[in-house]
Nucleic acid binder design. Structure first.
Lengths: 342, 342
DNA sequence: CTGTTAGCGCCTTCAA
DNA sequence: TTGAAGGCGCTAACAG
């Protein structure tokens, strides 16, 4: 590293231009009270040295940074899709985006969002979008919008998809195909989304005048392996279900796997519906029928809400976007009669 | 907001615990030289107040932050896929991730990466992964790894996919199907990836003993609309090509559109190959045959290189990962004879 | 063991 | 029109 490398600071610029630091600051921030000639000279030096204000130093001093933070537990398909929606909705607004994955410690360390928020807020970011927070973020010093909070819409501003209605659509689709023994692999019972999807499942059955067989409701925990194990069991009971509504796509993939192992053909012998429509869903064998959440739109709506709040205007508290059933090949008419194993 | 809201600062903790600020700092950073009783008391207050050190303030002071920066021009499918690979390769390393899209101004503002890097480095992040930089980032104060740099591997550490070989695979696939008049819609001529893909196209033809008809090489600029326009022209010339190798998937989609407008069936009348394998590629009509880059792996390899560099160990300068042809439905045998328009 | 002092890079009064 | 002084939240040296 050559001498004087590191970063070019405002002091370097001031020295090179033969003025004081505050003068440089004024030029950069376009404050008036600087002689035209001085402005030009400073600008030249800035360009020549490739100086850029340090986001850090600036944010420590002044409250506004022009940066919106996206706090995620991890960058996986769900959050990256949101990110895309957020990104496209942000272009042209003058805000920059800073996505932060602060989950160093183990998986479901609760409170990761509080930690991240605390580390970034008050400094660095003017507002935040928190993805799938597990706790309430009531007392924050900056505007916050939560996307798909695990606790459901509480105090703060919230954007989510209509989980319950999506589940209803999924089950109604199966009912329309003539299925009557429809199982449900539910998600993590502590998450609002899982509760809502189960509620939708039950509501659809009840509406259709069918009883809910509690033996057909099992825990898949949103996980593929666990769901596969549970499905193996579920599909070998007497009078097995002819259709399974899995709480998410990972679970559905687990069911598909179990079915293949048991020699059950999908959809001839068994119909499977997932939830989320992750990219992988269209590449399974057969392609998975699933309920899609408008991820990109969830993201863009969240930014819009946040920007409104940043402008100091009142924003709607909760936005709920519709989900859409995506019919692919994993669902079909109910087999006339079910004989175990085939 | 309750009085004294905002952010809980180290001063608040110190006051509440009845100690000085540096003492709190020592406890937090687990430095020794603090009485056990004091440690406990401070920790209690920290927990109670929910205090977290400000990333900004800390980074301003100390050099190491434990945060790796990912600098992208924008969050779109390419960069978000990389992000996933980066994210999974980072878990368990103790590093946090900070993805920054600092592109406020127009689209291809050159030098966005310098600006972003300058704003974050020296503070905030310990190292950076820059996605598709348009210029060389030689003199940086922190370790930097570039993914798919538009200028090709130069001074700095680099990870990219084998663009040329991918193009060769694509064209050889078409040759194997009996095509001899194969057009190429090239990308932006200023980008290394585009140059390499064109080079692969030419090499494959030459290797097969076929002449390169310059009339079949057109500029698609990596853009769908522009490619559609160019394709409309290209597909109506006498002795039109029976296959098109587009420099990326967007261009390929443009070709598909143009073909549909002209009443050409794909793949019966025209075969189309893209490049990138964006998620959308599998949902076009028909699904697009394309060359896939191992995006997630590009990301994870980049992190590995960066972490090695951060450890002060020597790292390999350039990593080039193989590309894979993904054969779907947009390619088929060359039609026996081509009659214009059908 | 604890507290005081001195900045990190920048911006904002306020004087000169 | 310019510069000097102070402080944002924090940590690293020292002094007590």
């Amino acid at each position: 590293m050559r001498p004087g490398a590191g970063r070019v600071t405002i002091a370097d610029v001031a020295r090179a231009a033969g003025v004081s630091i505050p003068t440089v600051s004024k030029v950069i921030n376009q404050r008036d009270g600087v002689a035209p000639a001085t402005i030009v000279r400073v600008q030249e030096v800035v360009a020549q040295l490739g100086y850029e204000t340090s986001l850090v130093a600036r944010s420590l001093r002044s409250s506004r940074t022009g940066v919106v933070g996206i706090l995620v537990p991890e960058f996986e398909p769900f959050s990256t899709e949101l990110l895309r929606g957020i990104s496209s909705a942000t272009t042209g607004t003058g805000y920059e985006l800073l996505a932060y994955a602060g989950l160093v410690t183990g998986a479901d360390q609760p409170g990761w969002e509080r930690r991240s928020l605390s580390r970034l807020s008050g400094t660095l970011i003017d507002g935040a979008i928190v993805v799938t927070p597990t706790t309430a973020l009531s007392s924050s010093s900056i505007p916050v919008v939560a996307i798909d909070p695990h606790t459901g819409p509480e105090g703060h501003a919230t954007v989510d998809a209509d989980n319950e209605d999506g589940a209803v659509q999924a089950v109604e689709h199966l009912l329309a195909l003539g299925h009557t023994r429809i199982a449900h692999l539910r998600g993590r019972p502590d998450l609002a989304s899982a509760q809502l999807r189960e509620a939708g499942y039950r509501r659809a059955l009840v509406t259709a005048g069918l009883p809910v067989d509690e033996g057909l409701v099992r825990d898949g925990g949103y996980q593929e392996d666990r769901s596969a194990a549970v499905a193996r069991d579920l599909l070998t009971i007497p009078d097995r279900p002819t259709a399974v509504f899995a709480a998410n796509d990972s679970s559905a993939v687990g069911v598909l796997r179990a079915a293949a192992e048991l020699g059950l053909r999908v959809p001839e012998d068994l119909s499977v519906v997932g939830f989320d429509d992750v990219p992988q869903a269209s590449t399974t064998t057969p392609p998975l029928t699933t309920v899609a959440q408008p991820l990109a739109e969830l993201g863009s709506r969240a930014v819009e809400m946040l920007l409104t709040m940043l402008r100091g205007e009142p924003a709607s508290d909760h936005v709920r976007l519709p989900t859409t059933l995506r019919v692919r090949r994993s669902t079909g008419p109910s087999p006339a009669r079910v004989t175990p194993g085939a």
